[in-house]
Design a protein around this nucleic acid. Structure first.
Lengths: 329, 329
DNA sequence: CTGTTAGCGCGTTCAG
DNA sequence: CTGAACGCGCTAACAG
């Protein structure tokens, strides 16, 4: 491996000069820049990121914290999209990402986590799938030891940004479409886990719709669980005209229950996961681009690293129905 | 953050002594060890891994290389299991893992990849989902610049190990079960991509079975694709008694085709993915524990780091049918 | 605009 | 058995 030393020698300059052109510092003549770049190119030199972070103390090493609670297919798909999006964006902006599952650090106190991360030279974190129960994470973020970007969690301060879709609006839209298409007058709403930050938002959107359309609405907590949604559907769907679920998995559970009960009710979901193409015939859902969300989070973190203040970033969504032909490859 | 200096001061020794007890070097008196450990504990000291790797040049920083070609649910599940298993095991053995998708490095030459990884201080790699087409990866491994563990690829040398299940045997068993249960005399075998290392093995197992049971076997290349399997089934299944697919996804494609054709043929798959519970009623499959495979790979890599020679490590599998009740949560 | 120098935190000889 | 001293590869003042 060539070091910065070799480059300096080859270009006939001091290592600090090389470092400067490497990091785009001002006050370097075009001529020297050229010489240095040439030497770098000829030697196929790649800076040692380890040494760089040791010395600079401010490199963009980032931890991607992921929740992997329920071992369902859905979680898999979403989580992997997060990882993929984050890693690719990280490569673009030249940032190192360490993937960490919350289960691996759940037993630690915020202080322990902080030390653990800092010992790895991590200065920024991106959190996906955080719940209200993850108080230690919240503390971690609030101490401000790291630049943070949270996905789907409304927590913003100088060095914390949030990336999420407008859940209230999305829930409103998808439900409205489903309900008006079928001229329903009453609805069973299967809301998510109380510990989920998006749960309240989605419920809010749903309430607005119920009021607007003058719907009779029954709200029940499905915990984002397919099984629970199934049970609730068995129990309540008969007396309602439609089932709106706050997640695709719950929508699938509801639909399967309806099939077993042998009655038809329109169902809609939220997420837009592939599984819908296999089982959810004709179900409206809100499709989120999780790859893009993670990617956005990385760019937002980069902004924070560069001195930007925390902010709220909305990402897009679309209303879709997934068909088998869309997912078969 | 406390440094090794603070610990040394508190324990009343030199930093080198602290370093020695940290790395379990001999020739340190029990008494000093005790003092140092106490200081470490009181200060909640965690060694800075960055500085450590800079200085030692032999830390176990590892790259987990993953293939993410087809954007299917199946790939998602398997890949995520790999990641999860690897990261958890890595934490146990105190090893740092950087996750990298092959798509991110596919445009680089082996030399470029080598430099890229080395610039990150990486000395070991684990590769999942490598195909025969990934020649640059093979070169990378064969240069011996890294300690490597390959999953499902038969390539072994002093610093390269392989982790995989006995694909031939597994394919033999699952097919045998399916075929004898249904007293079949002819079979359509949907093999995987030619570029897959497991494809030949599975075919080998299948051939042995065909010979043993004196089956009429038609082999067609399904490319691990659901769509292709579907088409092949439409074309050939009618004249056969059973369909054996070299992957779950193909099995699902075959089954859907059979349903549309409105004929019954026993089908079996390979992998044991969750999706089978949703769509694959009563299908035999070979269930692999991808979490465990990745975990095993990490431990194997650790062995290589410690001077062990490359070897072949077999992991287990089981024959199962997945039902909806097994996957609903 | 360029070069010198002092660390970053730790591992590792090598005297003592 | 212990500690002083050097260096890993690089960044960041600080002189010049």
């Amino acid at each position: 491996m060539n070091t910065i030393w070799d480059v300096a020698k080859k270009a006939g300059v001091a290592i600090s000069t090389v470092s400067k052109v490497l990091n785009n510092y001002p006050y370097v003549s075009e001529e020297t820049k050229r010489k240095v770049r040439e030497a770098i190119h000829e030697l196929n030199y790649i800076p040692n990121t380890i040494a760089a972070s040791l010395s600079s103390k401010q490199t963009a090493r980032t931890a991607l914290l992921l929740n992997l609670n329920a071992g369902t297919q859905v979680i898999d798909e979403i989580t992997l999209q997060y990882i993929h999006g984050a890693l690719n964006a990280a490569m673009e902006v030249n940032m190192e990402i360490i993937t960490i599952f919350l289960s691996m650090i759940k037993h630690m106190t915020p202080e322990e986590i902080t030390r653990y991360l800092q010992s790895q030279g991590i200065t920024g974190i991106i959190i996906c799938g955080m719940t209200k129960e993850d108080r230690y994470l919240r503390e971690l973020v609030e101490t401000g030891s790291f630049k943070s970007v949270l996905v789907d969690v409304p927590l913003i301060n100088d060095n914390t940004s949030t990336v999420w879709v407008d859940n209230a609006e999305a829930q409103y839209e998808v439900a409205k479409k489903t309900i008006t298409e079928n001229k329903c007058e009453s609805v069973l709403y299967l809301e998510g886990k109380d510990n989920g930050y998006v749960t309240d938002e989605r419920l809010k959107g749903m309430k607005r719709l119920a009021e607007e359309l003058n719907l009779k609405m029954l709200v029940r907590n499905g915990d984002f669980s397919e099984l629970k949604a199934r049970e609730l559907t068995f129990k309540y769907a008969k007396r309602k005209d439609a089932v709106v679920a706050a997640s695709d998995l719950m929508a699938i559970g509801a639909m399967n229950a309806l099939i077993e009960m042998d009655i038809f009710r329109p169902v809609c979901g939220f997420d837009g996961i592939t599984l819908m193409g296999y089982v959810g015939k004709q179900m409206n859902t809100v499709r989120q681009d999780f790859y893009n969300i993670a990617s956005t989070a990385v760019w937002e973190l980069k902004r924070l690293f560069e001195g930007g203040k925390g902010q709220n970033v909305y990402t897009k969504y679309e209303l879709v129905k997934l068909y088998y032909k869309d997912v078969i490859v």
